[in-house]
Design a protein around this nucleic acid. Sequence first.
DNA 1: GGCTAAGGCTATTAGCCATAGCTTTGTGGG
DNA 2: CCCACAAAGCTATGGCTAATAGCCTTAGCC
Lengths: 193, 193
Amino acid sequence: MPRAGLNPDAVVDHALALIDEEGPDALTLAAVAARAGVAAPSLYKHVPGGLAGLRRLIAVRVTTDLAQELRRAIAGKHGEPAVTALMRAYHSYAMAHPQRYAALPQAPLPGDEQLMDAATLLVGTIFEVLADYGIGESEAVHAARSVRAIAHGFASLSIAGAFRLSEDLTETQDRLLTLLTDGLRSWPGAKSA
Amino acid sequence: MPRAGLNPDAVVDHALALIDEEGPDALTLAAVAARAGVAAPSLYKHVPGGLAGLRRLIAVRVTTDLAQELRRAIAGKHGEPAVTALMRAYHSYAMAHPQRYAALPQAPLPGDEQLMDAATLLVGTIFEVLADYGIGESEAVHAARSVRAIAHGFASLSIAGAFRLSEDLTETQDRLLTLLTDGLRSWPGAKSA
DNA sequence: GGCTAAGGCTATTAGCCATAGCTTTGTGGG
DNA sequence: CCCACAAAGCTATGGCTAATAGCCTTAGCC
């Protein structure tokens, strides 16, 4: 039997395709193996930790992807335009890859270096954008948490289909963005523009 | 073998206890049956639809519980105090029952009458609180979505352990509440207090 | 040419959901 | 008082799943 030429990244690719097409619950080693053209146990040669390990790798990949998408969106921007660009990019990513986003754990398990790094990149991007507001140390943490809560809450509910009424979602997003930017402008310790 | 005196509600009780103690992933028919003192297949006599059906019943129960908790919190309050009471109660519920909240689907599957009713009760409570602001039809929908996004995002991330830094969570909640109440006060079409 | 390591495989175990079909229990009507 | 019947148990079975063990083959390098 010829070698399939697999490596961890390729396995994650197959897994992501599976998740995109059939949702997070369809992620089984058997299904991934079928896609890779390999028997299920063979995956253990490439992915340490079996299914749980695969999920971890997926989380790292997706978190990194998302973070880079955000960085790209804010490149060259500062202050309020950067914040809105970040928020819009966040929501766009979630809507473009709903299943992936839904599968994403919002916090790394303790001791997971790789995922921790990816999460740090993502959170760091938020802090970067907030830096222009000149908000102090501790207040910046509260502000970043707020940004994240709004971004995640809106993305998560959008994906879940919680917004059933006919009103336009982008309009909701506009309102939410005004709410956020207004709030940040008058944040405790923020330099007024 | 004596009868166990089970009914759908009792099965849900056991299931919730299990979820609270060991998390949503530990919810298996085998484990629920063990708690109920019954063999696994016997559960099918009480819960239509097997495991999926049980999950549905759990969602109805928890959504209803949460909604009632919110209604209790806002009883007799109006305007801004009602909003903050609702938001605080939401977060309290999530923190008191983190596993249940994490297991909660944020939208009912289409065609699920019971869960739809529970969700309507919950969303209706939000609209009720917003009514005092005198925001018009369509804008009220955007406002309610915003409230929900913030409540869910903050609860969800809190539970997931996404807020690792040492800053006090209640302080973040205070900032988020000011952000929300300020935003609602100046919402398009809101009557100024 | 042959050795070694990596990458496949099959077989097996254990746990899960779900269904089928049998047995027991409890209850209400004759 | 007892019998019939429905409700509520059970065991057995089948078909998933992950994961491990152990074997075989391929590829590449010395």
